[in-house]
Amino acid sequence: MKVFLETQELILRQFTEEDADNLFELDSDPEVMRFINGGKPPEDKIIHKQGLPRVLGYYEKYENFGFWATIEKSSNQFIGWFHFYPAIENKFAVELQLVNNDEIALGYRLRKSSWGKGYATEGSQALVSKGFAELGVQRVVAWALTANKASIRVMEKAGLKFEKEFTFTQSQLPNVQPLERKAVKYALNKDEFHLPQRLA
Rank of each mutant, 00 (worst) to 15 (best):
153 R>I: 04
120 A>F: 12
58 Y>E: 04
19 D>T: 01
77 Q>Y: 07
62 Y>D: 12
36 I>E: 11
103 E>S: 05
43 E>N: 10
18 E>F: 00
69 A>R: 14
83 H>G: 07
120 A>E: 02
13 R>V: 01
166 F>G: 12
149 K>F: 15
109 R>N: 04
96 L>K: 04
154 V>W: 05
100 N>T: 10
102 D>I: 00
37 N>D: 14
50 Q>T: 13
158 A>R: 01
145 L>K: 12
193 F>T: 00
146 T>S: 14
181 R>T: 00
115 W>M: 06
174 P>E: 03
95 E>K: 13
118 G>E: 01
71 I>R: 02
145 L>N: 13
41 P>A: 12
148 N>W: 15
101 N>T: 03
41 P>F: 13
146 T>I: 09
138 Q>K: 15
1 M>C: 04
68 W>R: 08
59 Y>V: 02
185 K>I: 15
24 F>L: 14
86 P>F: 12
104 I>F: 09
191 D>Q: 11
113 S>T: 06
186 Y>H: 10
31 E>I: 13
48 H>L: 09
165 E>A: 15
189 N>I: 00
65 F>H: 13
48 H>P: 01
129 S>H: 15
191 D>H: 10
55 V>S: 04
188 L>C: 05
119 Y>N: 05
92 F>E: 11
74 S>I: 02
32 V>I: 13
102 D>W: 05
173 L>F: 05
24 F>K: 07
181 R>A: 00
189 N>T: 00
119 Y>F: 15
157 K>P: 05
100 N>E: 13
79 I>L: 07
154 V>C: 09
96 L>P: 04
177 Q>S: 14
116 G>Y: 04
18 E>G: 00
112 K>Q: 10
185 K>P: 03
50 Q>A: 13
22 N>G: 12
20 A>I: 00
186 Y>K: 01
130 K>S: 10
27 D>G: 02
34 R>A: 14
101 N>L: 05
64 N>G: 03
55 V>P: 04
68 W>S: 01
138 Q>W: 07
21 D>A: 02
122 E>T: 02
129 S>T: 15
65 F>P: 02
177 Q>Y: 07
22 N>R: 02
170 Q>K: 15
10 L>K: 03
86 P>C: 06
88 I>L: 09
179 L>I: 00
